[in-house]
Deep mutational scan, measured.
Amino acid sequence: DEVTIHLGDKTIRVDGLDKELLEILKELARRGADEEELRKEIERWER
């Protein structure tokens, strides 16, 4: 499953996201997290 996250004018595509992680990323994005913060969160989950 590829998920596309839209952040204002930026788009991040991620393969096979965990549903819980997806919810966390959506919440972070709502709070104004930037792409770098979201990537760090994704990397934390992948470990």
Rank of each mutant, 00 (worst) to 15 (best):
E46L: 15
I24T: 06
H6Y: 03
K40L: 10
T11S: 13
R39E: 03
A29L: 14
A33V: 06
K19M: 09
W45T: 01
V3E: 12
I42H: 01
E23T: 11
R13H: 09
D18C: 06
R13K: 13
D9A: 06
R39V: 06
L25M: 02
R39D: 02
K40R: 13
D1H: 12
E20H: 10
L17S: 06
E20A: 14
E23C: 03
H6F: 04
D1N: 13
E23V: 11
E2Q: 13
E37Y: 07
R44Q: 09
I5Y: 00
L22P: 00
L25V: 03
W45A: 01
D9R: 03
L22F: 10
D15G: 09
E36I: 10
L28P: 00
I5Q: 03
K19P: 15
T4H: 15
R39M: 14
L21V: 02
L7V: 15
T11E: 11
D1P: 12
T4Y: 14
D34P: 11
E27F: 11
A29R: 13
D9W: 02
K19N: 10
G16P: 04
I24H: 11
V14Y: 09
E27N: 13
I42V: 04
E2A: 12
I12D: 02
G16I: 12
E37L: 07
E41A: 14
D15V: 14
R31D: 04
L38M: 07
G8Y: 04
E27S: 14
R13E: 08
L22A: 07
I24W: 14
L28V: 01
D9V: 04
G32S: 02
L38S: 00
L22T: 05
E41D: 00
E23S: 12
I24Y: 10
D1R: 07
A29V: 12
E36S: 10
D9Y: 02
L17Y: 10
L25H: 00
E37Q: 11
R13S: 12
K26F: 15
T11M: 04
E37V: 12
L7H: 04
I12K: 01
G8T: 11
R47A: 13
E43T: 04
D1W: 08
E35M: 09
K40S: 09
R13W: 12
H6N: 14
V3F: 15
L17F: 09
G32Q: 01
I24R: 15
W45F: 05
E2C: 07
E35R: 03
E20F: 09
I5N: 03
K19F: 10
T4M: 11
L22H: 03
R31H: 05
R44T: 06
V3T: 13
K19R: 10
R47N: 10
E35A: 10
G8A: 11
E43V: 07
I5G: 03
T11I: 14
L38H: 00
E2T: 13
L28H: 01
W45H: 03
G16K: 11
T11W: 07
R44F: 08
E46P: 06
R47M: 13
R47W: 11
D34L: 07
I42F: 04
K10V: 14
K26E: 04
L28I: 02
D18Y: 05
G8M: 06
E2D: 11
L7Y: 06
A33P: 00
L22E: 02
I5K: 03
L28N: 00
L22G: 04
E2V: 13
T11G: 14
E20S: 09
L25E: 00
G32H: 02
G32Y: 01
E23Q: 13
A33R: 02
D34T: 15
T11V: 12
I5L: 06
H6C: 09
E41S: 04
E35L: 09
I12M: 07
I42R: 03
E35W: 11
H6A: 10
E41V: 13
E2Y: 14
G32L: 01
E37G: 04
V3G: 11
V3H: 13
W45M: 02
L17M: 09
K26A: 09
L28M: 15
K10A: 12
E43Q: 11
A33G: 05
D18F: 05
K40Q: 10
G16H: 13
R47T: 09
A29Y: 15
T4V: 15
W45G: 01
L21Y: 01
E23L: 13
V14D: 03
E36N: 08
I12T: 02
D18L: 06
I24V: 10
R39A: 07
L22R: 09
L38Y: 05
L21Q: 03
R30P: 00
I42P: 00
G16D: 08
K40C: 03
K40A: 14
L38A: 02
D15P: 15
L28C: 01
D15C: 15
E35Q: 06
I12W: 02
E43A: 05
D34N: 14
R31N: 08
K10T: 15
E35C: 04
R44I: 09
L25D: 00
R47Y: 14
G16V: 10
G32R: 02
E20G: 12
L17N: 04
V3M: 14
D18M: 07
K26T: 09
L7K: 02
E37P: 00
I5M: 03
W45C: 01
L22C: 03
E36T: 10
K40Y: 07
D1M: 11
K26Q: 14
D34Y: 03
E2G: 15
K10D: 06
E27Q: 13
V14M: 06
A33K: 03
R44Y: 07
E23D: 12
R13A: 09
E37N: 03
L22M: 11
T11C: 05
L21G: 00
R30Q: 05
W45K: 01
K19H: 10
W45P: 00
H6M: 13
I42K: 02
D15E: 13
L38T: 01
E46Y: 15
I24Q: 05
K10I: 15
K26G: 03
E27R: 14
R31G: 04
K19Q: 11
E27K: 09
E41R: 05
E43K: 06
W45N: 01
E27M: 15
R31F: 05
R31M: 07
R31I: 05
R13D: 07
K26L: 15
T11N: 11
K40I: 07
D34R: 08
A33Q: 02
G32I: 01
I12V: 07
E27P: 00
D34S: 15
K10Q: 08
E43H: 08
G16N: 12
L25C: 02
D34G: 13
K10P: 06
R39K: 09
I5A: 03
L17V: 10
E36D: 13
R31S: 06
R30V: 04
E43I: 08
E41M: 14
L7W: 07
D15M: 02
A29C: 07
V14H: 04
V14A: 06
R44A: 11
D1A: 12
V14Q: 03
R44H: 07
H6I: 13
G8I: 08
K19L: 12
E20V: 13
E41N: 03
L38V: 08
L38G: 00
I5P: 03
I24E: 01
G16Y: 10
G8H: 09
G8Q: 11
E20P: 04
R31W: 09
R47L: 15
D34F: 04
I12F: 06
I12N: 02
H6S: 13
L7D: 03
E20Q: 14
E35H: 06
I5R: 02
E43L: 13
E37M: 12
E2K: 10
E23N: 10
I5E: 04
A33L: 05
L25P: 00
K19V: 09
I5F: 01
L28T: 00
T4D: 10
E2P: 12
T11F: 08
L21C: 02
K40N: 10
I24A: 05
I24C: 03
R13P: 07
K10M: 14
L21W: 02
E23W: 14
L22I: 15
E43W: 05
L38C: 03
E37S: 08
L28R: 01
E35F: 10
L38D: 00
E41K: 02
D18Q: 14
L7N: 04
R30F: 09
D9H: 07
R44P: 00
L21D: 00
I12R: 01
L21E: 01
D9F: 04
E23P: 01
E43D: 08
R30C: 03
D15S: 15
E37K: 06
K26P: 00
E36W: 15
A29M: 15
T11K: 08
E27H: 11
H6R: 11
V3P: 09
L7S: 04
R30K: 08
G32M: 01
V14G: 05
E36A: 13
K10Y: 15
L7Q: 04
E35N: 05
D9E: 08
I24G: 01
K26W: 15
L25I: 09
V14N: 02
G16F: 09
L28F: 05
G8K: 10
V14I: 12
R13L: 12
L25S: 00
K26V: 12
G32T: 01
E36H: 12
R44K: 11
G32P: 00
R13C: 04
G16M: 11
W45R: 02
R30I: 06
L38R: 01
E41T: 12
E27L: 15
L38K: 01
E35S: 07
R39S: 03
E27W: 08
A29F: 15
V3A: 14
L28Y: 03
R30G: 05
E43M: 10
I12E: 02
D18E: 09
E37T: 15
L22V: 15
R30S: 07
E2F: 14
T4E: 13
I42Y: 05
I12G: 02
K10N: 10
E35Y: 14
R30Y: 06
A33E: 02
R47D: 07
T4Q: 10
R39H: 04
G8C: 08
K26N: 07
K40H: 05
E36C: 02
I24M: 09
T4S: 10
R47S: 14
L22W: 12
E43G: 05
G32W: 01
R13M: 08
E35T: 06
G32E: 01
E46F: 15
